[in-house]
Amino acid sequence: MGMQKELQAAIKAILPEVDCVIGWGSGPDPLHGAPLFMRSEDDANRFASGFFAVNNPALFLPEYKGKKVAVVVKGCDARSVGQLLSEGLIKREEVSLIGFPCQGVVDHDKVAAALGEKGEMGEVTAVLEEGDALVLTLRGETVRLNKADVTAEKCMRCQYPNAHIADTFVGEKREPVATADDFADLAVFEAMSLEERQAFWEKEMSRCIRCYACRNACPLCVCRDHCVATSRDPSWLTQADSVKDKLFFQVIHATHLAGRCTGCGECQRACPVGIPVLLLKRSLARSVEKLFAYRAGIDEGTPPLLTFTLEEPTIKERSW
């Protein structure tokens, strides 16, 4: 029985106990999955795990407060669930987690870049997974891509491919891809001068359309309908189409996620114009990991920036 079938069996087994099971189904084209909310065996038959199951289903959990739901989680999704639990944003007894050994997910921007002049993603009519390769059919021809070349960055540095909290775990746990996060993505960025970084952000943010998909795709955004981005009372940002305001919002969002962001990358994936907004959060995550020895969503206890201790064990400012 393949992973897909095993997961479907696990989903069907838990269906009678829950309001719904959140997982993935197919999207509008063969390269895209979509969140799937399963309430029946028929729904469960439409469940599709694998390389295209990119969405983080933890995002939806707070909407189901007061109801019992099950959720199928990749390792990174489980981290988000972990963080939601530590912050009391969801209740443990209301959520049942189905884990599995995640083999990584696609990065659509990489696929688009790999296809280049051969065509657009929307022209792909069929996708086959053959071992380490993806075989795409478009314009009547086949294009072979190495999965490794079109895998999401977060998967390339994944330390937690097996949901670390799971009520049901389907399949054999796999070896992590990496043992530590070297934040190599930040090194590339930080090699730039401050002026270059400023210019980088100004250029990137200038195409922001302020749809706030980054914010709404974030499982840990708690302000939701009361965001300073659009609030007039307080009025912190103008509605002008200005890079300054757009970048200001990203900084607020990232700061609000310091020590909370688990690096699921949904903000960046959701951005329709491909702005690398995860960078800001990664930088803060590294600082928090260094300063407080805390990995959001993994380490238990109150997140360090949601509490106060006279002396942080890793900072030791009294013995300086």
Partner: peptide, 16 residues
Amino acid sequence: QAESAGCLACGACTYL
């Protein structure tokens, strides 16, 4: 509710 279950209520659709 079923049609909007996966919707993030962001503005990507409207702004594009």
